[in-house]
């Protein structure tokens, strides 16, 4: 799905989180929103997901104004920084949640739900953990379950907030590869937020560098490395 961000602005009271920013995310791309904390990258991601309302501008999904779509209607697969798994539900129940929450007309049958959950557990390469509770999983496993839960609703795009932030270096490398593979297999337009320039450069097709509520530069990783548009980008992306 093509995502067009058209002069989106956001302020909380008197503080400006996003100066009007515009960027187009091509369909099927894997895009990193890269910037230090307070640069507005998470706010932008939350606006895409419908969790935050912009104070100005609009977002277009495949040319249609998303402003009228509620969070529930957007079908944005959102992976939270803390994963936000439902701790009183098993992994299976977590992944099935979005399907079971549908109104009866569009809800798949129980067998169909089970089939899909099993398929997703295979996809994240954790076929055996359906009966466990989130509290019994490692950090890396939780992250993958959160990803599977987001994929279960057949999302139109995948939005990830610092998806590897809470993991140690070894697991992080492993899961980066996993996200790349899942993106390539599903072909979903994927946007992830990170403050780690190495992660952005290694994983993304397109990197959006942000600072203080503005977009500093949009480009392919090697373009940003070779031709930084500003002093900020040069310093921030210096390895």
């Amino acid at each position: 799905m093509l995502i067009e961000i058209d002069r989106i602005a956001k302020s909380f009271g008197t503080t400006t989180a996003l100066d009007p920013v515009s960027v187009t995310i091509p369909s099927g791309a894997l895009v990193a929103l890269l910037g230090p904390s307070g640069s507005g990258k998470t706010t932008l991601l939350r606006i895409l997901g419908g969790l935050e309302y912009p104070t100005g501008g609009r977002v277009l999904f495949d040319g249609q104004d998303a402003g009228k779509l509620s969070v529930q209607e957007r079908r944005a697969g959102f992976v939270f920084q803390s994963y936000a798994l439902f701790r009183h539900m098993t992994v299976h129940e977590n992944i099935a949640y979005g399907l079971r929450a549908r109104p009866r007309r569009t809800r798949p049958t129980r067998a169909e739900i089970d089939r899909r959950v099993t398929g997703l557990l295979d996809l994240i390469q954790l076929p055996e953990i359906g009966a466990r509770y989130p509290g019994q999983l490692s950090g890396g496993q939780r992250q993958r379950v959160a990803l599977a839960r987001a994929l279960a609703i057949e999302p139109r795009m995948l939005l990830l907030d610092e998806p590897f932030g809470a993991l140690d270096a070894r697991v992080r490398k492993e899961l980066r590869q996993g996200l790349r593979e899942i993106h390539d297999r599903t072909g979903l337009t994927t946007v992830f937020v990170t403050h780690d320039q190495e992660e952005a450069m290694e994983l993304a097709d397109l990197v959006v560098v942000m600072s203080m509520g503005r977009i500093e530069q949009v480009g392919r990783p090697q373009d940003i490395r070779q031709r930084p548009a500003s002093e900020f980008v040069r310093e921030f992306t210096a390895a």
Binding site: G49, G50, L51, V71, Q72, E73, R74, R75, A76, G77, F78, F80, A84, L85, F86, Y97, G98, A101, R102, R149, A150, A152, I153
Partner: peptide, 9 residues
């Protein structure tokens, strides 16, 4: 928020 993004009212 996670519940809402998954489509739950």
């Amino acid at each position: 928020e996670a519940s809402a993004t998954l489509g739950a009212s």
